[in-house]
Design a binder for these strands. Structure first.
Length: 338
DNA sequence: CTTAAGAACGGACCCACACCCTACC
DNA sequence: CCGGTAGGGTGTGGGTCCGTTCTTA
């Protein structure tokens, strides 16, 4: 299935969704439409789901560096206990026109690049860490502009809209394992919501927005086809694989009543078959795997030393005098650092 | 169809030590 | 302010362990 086309030009791939207009737009049309007047410039927009590219993103996963719609979020993060622990925050709509830089980011990868910019570009910079955390925290707070907007003038905007359309139950098993890689991307992990059998709203801890998906048994970690099929089948049991038109309208714009042809076009979102979704999820996971979980060597010199170091059953072993002599004779010396 | 045993898979852990970074003089 | 030194923390890879899931009888 092709990506969703812009509701305006009908030719370019839609990369964002305007809540006020209930319209999927490409960057160019977004710039045209929302630069038309001051009122239009205050329309809240969100990125299109990176996986299905058919529905507006409602949550951003920091671990995956991806913006996901309701259904994809549920599919992906119900796959296994570790995925369920991914730190996700509600999508923060933006109001500014896309600059050339941001549009470039969109062209070259859409929401992923946008998120990577936000979440991962400064991972190694300690000086930037506090900024990053503050930014992440800001995602949980209503946008000041949103508060001004008559459409979104609700202090509960950030979560109440999600409560309404998430269509999920809260509670259920929580794996106490920590995901080490995610710890790197966030200093906020570790707080696991207390389990409760009662339905409860999403838990918001100090920085983290956590959601649980009960009834999803633990799956094999990784990207096996089995895992995928499980997640897909789970989605098929629920609402449509991709939010249907009604659901999508409800999701994307719970505060305004879209009017006119734009709304019509938004409602014409074509439901995606389970096979399509499976393919997209698979593609997404492969992309994420390549993108994020590659091991990076920070110090090549240490790698060189580790490779030459004597081992006993895989563990580093102390160097004996014989080893030292052998190293010297083989020319091992100080490994230049890079 | 259910159950149990074995196989397969994958993440976590451990080890030594050169290098990096910070504090101190 | 600058350079030297000391000391603690960090990162590196391969084998093993162990928990979970899958397969098969």
């Amino acid at each position: 299935m092709a990506s969703k086309l812009c509701d305006s030009c009908k030719s370019a791939t839609a990369t964002l969704f305007c809540r006020a207009d209930s319209a999927f737009l490409c960057v160019n049309c977004d710039n045209k439409v929302h630069a038309a007047n001051k009122l239009a410039s205050r329309h809240a927009r969100v990125w299109v789901c990176e996986v299905c590219e058919q529905a507006p993103a409602h949550v951003t996963c920091k671990a995956d560096a991806a913006a996901l719609c309701v259904t994809c979020d549920r599919d992906i993060h119900s796959a296994n206990p570790l995925a369920r622990r991914h730190e996700r925050v509600p999508v923060n709509p933006f109001y500014d026109l896309l600059t050339s830089g941001s549009s470039t980011a969109v062209k070259s990868g859409g929401a992923v690049n946008f998120l990577e910019e936000r979440c991962f570009s400064n991972v190694e910079g300690d000086a930037e860490a506090s900024t990053e955390e503050a930014e992440a925290a800001s995602w949980l707070l209503p946008n000041p502009k949103a508060m001004e907007s008559p459409d979104l003038n609700s202090g509960q905007y950030v979560f109440t809209d999600m409560d309404r359309y998430l269509d999920m139950e809260y509670g259920g098993g929580v794996d106490t394992k920590l995901e080490a890689q995610e710890q790197n991307s966030s200093g906020t992990d570790g707080v696991v919501p207390v389990q409760s059998k009662n339905v409860r709203p999403p838990v918001v801890n100090e920085h983290c927005f956590e959601m649980e998906y009960p009834g999803s048994k633990p799956f094999v970690y990784g990207y096996s086809s089995h895992c995928l099929s499980q997640s897909v089948s789970s989605s098929s049991l629920d609402v449509g694989v991709v939010p249907d038109s009604n659901a999508m309208t409800d999701v994307s714009n719970p505060y305004t009543k879209p009017t006119g042809s734009v709304m019509e076009s938004a409602q014409h979102a074509v439901p995606m078959s389970s096979a399509d979704r499976e393919a997209r999820v698979l593609r997404y996971r492969e992309k994420r795997k390549n993108r994020k979980f590659e091991k990076t060597i920070r110090y090549a010199s240490r790698k060189a030393y580790a490779e030459t170091r004597p081992r006993i059953k895989g563990r580093f072993a102390k160097r004996t005098d014989v080893d030292l002599e052998a190293d010297r004779s083989c020319g091992y010396g100080v490994v230049p650092s890079f």
